[in-house]
Amino acid sequence: MLDKDLKNLWNNAPQKGNVQFDKQKILNEMNTEIQKIDRSIRNRNLRETFAALLVILMFGWSFFTTDVLISKIGMGAVVLGAAFIIYKLYAVRKSRQPVDVSTDVKTQLVASRDYLKKEQNLLQNVLYWYILPLAAPILFIGIVNGSPLLFKVIYSLFVIGLSFFVYWLNQKAAKGFDPNIAQLEEAIEKL
């Protein structure tokens, strides 16, 4: 079979359906869809920031109301930890540029792989930017306050257990990126 025959076969193949579009509705619908996507990203960002702000408010309030210096230090550390998380999420969002869909295919594949690696890296390092800045001072506050020993033990076990659970969840989610990253590596290599 010659090139021409092959191309004829492709071009003469019955259309896999005919695309129809409503000229009156399409632009409105697409603009609404774009707004919807932007709104969902904005809402997610707001939720993340709101959760951290809540922690800042709660511990910030306790920081000013408590008289015990050592607890004050702990509360201050939690506030700083939460502020660091807000900063980290902001920095990640800034670097999370959408991949330009009109670039050439190879550039797009490389950018997509890098994007996924960045997201995976964020989950893998959750211990340093999320768990430790919050869990360490929270644990510290529980240990240094004047509660009975049994309470301190249960409290510490709870905080440590929760931290492990959050860590495990994030590592599991990070592993979920492996197949896609491997497929992209393969596609880049084969192209």
């Binding site: 359906g17 005919n18 695309v19 129809q20 579009f21 409503d22 399409i26 697409m30 869809e33």
Partner: peptide, 11 residues
Amino acid sequence: VNLDSIKIEYP
């Protein structure tokens, strides 16, 4: 995405 204004019609 869900755009009702774009359809594919199959004979």
